[in-house]
Design a binder for these strands. Structure first.
Lengths: 217, 217, 217, 217
DNA sequence: GATGAATGAGTCTTCATTCAT
DNA sequence: GATGAATGAAGACTCATTCAT
């Protein structure tokens, strides 16, 4: 396995190198060295530098999606599903920071330089979140006015930004569990102390009301 | 003013060009052409290509931060502040897509190739969110167990992912107002139909119940 | 025989591939594929890429020379020999265009990149023409002042340029017989209507005669 | 002129280098060095390596064609024209061997690797010869059955092969004048001692006739 | 200050050749 | 002998940066 599977070795090397330097600042020669193959060997397995990046995305995202689907299938309750989605997502990020960084930082901008590339895997990943939401809506657990298209992006974005923080700062102030719990709490219960109060009060400008509702601070 | 302010013209040209091609696929010559100056002139105003990017970030983020601070200062209620933060953020994205894209896609990875650059402006931006939260917590409006470090990133991440969708897809399924409303709703009230129910039920595996599809809580 | 004779198969494949792409734009891999052998197998039969080219030349030119010698030996009259030389030369070109093209286009410049290679076969081919001429001169058929060194190249060049036309244009405006007849006519009789008139009149500048358009001779 | 005119300097350098090594074995770096410019500078004047070759051909052939047309316009007599065409052609070859070699050896095979390139200049050059012939035919000087399409290629081929000999061997056994005279003689008068005899005798096989016409050698 | 022609370091990619199987 | 995966040297071309004008 170490000797053979050049494809896998190159992929792993590329993940490391791309994560370290960024795609554009990575050299094929560096990947080759990291993978212990000759420069030219890389071109026996990939068409070009971009192709390596795309392949990483397709293959690794494929694995992640399968893993996540399998995980949330364990739970019935959409609330549970959402929480475990977050937990697993953040765990995977923690486990393979290089890959996480790559997906977050490099593949996001892939649309910029690979016009043809449609990020189907990413759409598929987001779709899982939307499905959980819809399930909950059908069961009457989640509010009907929540728009899946906005929710899936918000939820993913929340986790993702948290991940970026971990990935880039290389120190981790909060545990995966804490982060997953907090984030799912935000989305499930909101952050209001007393949920009976409306989340967004009728727009009332600071200066418009003479009888100040309360003095901030 | 248009003719004289070379610095500004170069910055604007660079925003356009970087947004169009990405930083690494943008050419100094293209920026120069767009700005109607000679290639060499750019080096009278900036040290190098990276410097243009950093300057864009510093200057434009500075403006945005000032703008946001001024906006939320209009409101007393932290809930209002949060909503208007989201509304303004998304409006700014909509108004200047090039800049938004640049900040989202390119500057995120600036740490990759500009090791010395610490993204203070971005931290400052996130800090505003944390401040709103803390304010609400002090007023007893927001729950005390919400961690500012996680919340600020989650909230920002939610908006940001939504923005990316707009910026990259160039079609806009939802209005700015809808998105801002939805997102602040998620974070303030959560998405539960009946907020009395706890957001995260005691962990209960699917397989545990054979018959009933599921009993929520 | 087809299966066994790898040498021959490689040669034939190389002729095809070289003719199609030119020597420098041909790939060993392509020749190997065309010959239905592995890339490495080629190096069991040839030292390197150049060696294939040289071998083609040596072997194929050898066959051609033998064929031509045998053909002209059938005729006594040097005039006949010359005509049949042309006829056979052009017929061979027509029959194997790939080989003809290769010899014409690629092997001509072989001296450029294979310093050691002296084109003996080609010299031998030209020599046949010179021999015919000398024979005719000894018989008093051909003029004594015709220089074999110039004649052999002129005659060959005439046929060769005609061949190149056929080979490169892939359409054939004139038949082999017509071309061979015309060319040998040019060299044997010249193109003058009245051979009594000298071919090259005493140099007389245009401007010398004001009225009469010109007086030949 | 030495300092400026980079275009011209690069062209001259390329002619030298291409002639020395052949197109495919020439390095851009070598041309740059020869021209005393940086590698990159070449790309300010030419699109790519092929473009240099094509430009050489177009520009230099253009000059040659103009020169030749001007020269033969001095003479009225088609026979004179033909002779002076040959004389000038060979003189030009002698004067700039590098260019001559380039045109002969490299540009001939240009069709192989530059599919789009149509060799119009070369066609134009050949056309001049055909025009001389037609002129002579109209004046009743040249035989009517001579086909311009064959004649122009034969005449050019004769000169060209002679040139190649000079160019490649770098020694010159015959003077330009001798060669020009001989070649035009061949084509105008043929090589027969007694032009009254038919150039091509009725096909008569060696062995078919018992009374040998003559014993060869 | 402004220009833009010139520079040349840097890298992806190709492909003839090798060699373990 | 035959294979074809692996090698790695080599080169066309790009483009950020400089500097003479």
């Amino acid at each position: 396995m170490k000797v053979a599977d050049k494809h896998g070795r190159i992929i792993q090397a590329a993940i490391k190198v791309f994560a370290r330097n960024g795609f554009f600042n990575s050299r094929i020669a560096e990947i080759a060295k990291e993978a212990n193959v000759a420069d030219g060997t890389i071109y026996l397995y990939f068409n070009n530098k971009y192709d390596i990046l795309i392949t990483i995305f397709e293959e690794e995202m494929g694995k992640i999606i399968a893993r996540v689907k399998q995980e949330i299938a364990k739970y019935d309750d959409p609330r549970e599903k959402l929480y475990h989605f977050a937990l697993l997502h953040l765990s995977l990020v923690e486990k393979d920071k290089d890959l996480a960084e790559l997906i977050q930082v490099e593949l996001r901008q892939s649309s910029k330089f690979i016009k043809e590339y449609k990020n189907r895997k990413f759409a598929e990943y987001l779709h899982i979140i939307a499905q959980i939401l819809k399930e909950g809506q059908q069961q009457g657990i989640f509010r009907q006015d929540v728009k899946p298209g906005i929710f899936k992006r918000s939820f993913f974005g929340a986790m993702d930004e948290m991940s970026r923080f971990w990935v880039l700062s290389s120190r981790k102030k909060y545990s995966v569990k804490t982060a997953a719990t907090q984030i799912s709490q935000y989305f499930l219960n909101g952050i209001l102390e007393d949920p009976q109060k409306p989340g967004k009060p009728a727009s009332k400008k600071k200066k418009s009301t003479g009888k100040k509702k309360r003095s901030v601070k």
